[in-house]
Design a protein around this nucleic acid. Structure first.
Lengths: 200, 200
DNA sequence: CCGTGTAAGGTACTCGGCGTACCTTATTGG
DNA sequence: CCAATAAGGTACGCCGAGTACCTTACACGG
């Protein structure tokens, strides 16, 4: 922050790190609208030139900073039952992907618009990146006979995640109430993947 | 500049109409980022004052204009089978809610941010507004024995719509390919609502 | 028919944020 | 030790949101 009378100028990776940290902090504190190039530069103790030498525009920097935020990998729960695993995953996502992540994501998605490359990066982060844990718990459930093998399709295993994300996007609320998670689990996900021969 | 030597000034509802039409046209042509107060004012043959006297900010005008665009009601199909009805509804939504509607919606959703009143208006438009046709086709399917009565829950009947909307939001593409619609229908919606006694 | 309140038109601002240009200064590696 | 490279500093230009203030037409009641 306070530069000493020793200039000791950061370069390369060190400076990039500092910029990304500053940008991520701004995202958390003020959301994407608060991520201005001037503020990030000031917070990182540098200036806009260093930013524009690395990212072509604000959206690119925003996506890069968001990636660092969302890189906290999701742990795969193992409660012994499919219902317990689904609820645990949903609650986990709801917890650490709630505010301000949802709002940040909304802001990023819109301001990208016509830059498919950035959208692809985001999609990798939120779309397929989050799918693996769901496949894992569903495979275990199939092995236990709790779910039908035919449910192991990409579009099926992520249904709960998509429904939860839909709550964020359309409702715009900070944290989804827990009974919504239960509804998603009991009304949609479990009936969908359950083996036909296995009544409720 | 002398426009006409007949000033014939529009007032009240007539002017409001003209502004909304201009705003909706801008939305269709250039998306939400292109909806500039200056441009709308110029296109409507008026100036920004008339706009700000009616809507407090750009987002409010954007939502109002979008409502007028999206007010084309969805027709309820009746093909005789649930699968046919579901696909028909999905295709209809995909057709007239595709580009540029999806992009506009994305832009609006993000830029609203902290104004819950506007978000509520949008939600009324896209969330529950679109649910009725789905309830209608599912009720008929239940009457025919194609679906279980227990599927008549709000979160269930709109699953297909939510999945389709998810494609728009996360993929950011103009029009969803038809095989995605078929996948949503055959892998998710039909297995979910089908009567348990009705094997695939 | 006229006068007056209301609403529209016109214009010119301020403010903030993006992106750029250009120069100076430090660091690094050959 | 000396270029080449990259960082810092500063000042722009541009555009769009929102505001202020005045002028001008319209509509309606007396």
């Amino acid at each position: 922050m306070d530069r000493e009378h020793q200039p000791t100028r950061r370069r390369g990776a060190a400076l990039e790190e500092a910029i990304l940290r500053a940008a991520a902090d701004e995202l958390v504190e003020s959301g994407y609208p608060g991520l201005t190039m001037d503020r990030v530069a000031r917070r990182a103790g540098t200036n806009k030139n260093a930013l524009y030498r690395r990212w072509p525009n604000r959206a690119a920097l925003g996506v890069a900073a968001y990636r660092r935020l969302a890189d906290a990998r999701t742990r795969v729960p193992d409660t012994g039952t499919l219902r317990g695993d689904v609820l645990a995953l949903l609650r986990q996502v709801n917890c650490d992907l709630s505010a301000p992540h949802g709002e940040i994501l909304r802001g990023l998605l819109s301001s990208i618009g016509d830059e498919p490359e950035l959208l692809a990066q985001l999609h990798e982060q939120i779309g397929d990146g989050g799918a693996e844990p769901w496949r894992a718990i569903l495979e275990r459930a199939v092995a236990r006979g709790e779910a039908r093998p035919g449910a192991l399709r990409p579009r099926v295993i992520t249904v709960a995640l998509v429904l939860l994300r839909n709550e964020y996007v359309t409702r715009g609320i900070a944290t989804v109430p827990d009974d919504v998670l239960v509804e998603i689990t009991d009304e949609v996900y479990l009936p969908l993947v359950r083996a036909e021969s296995n009544p409720r």
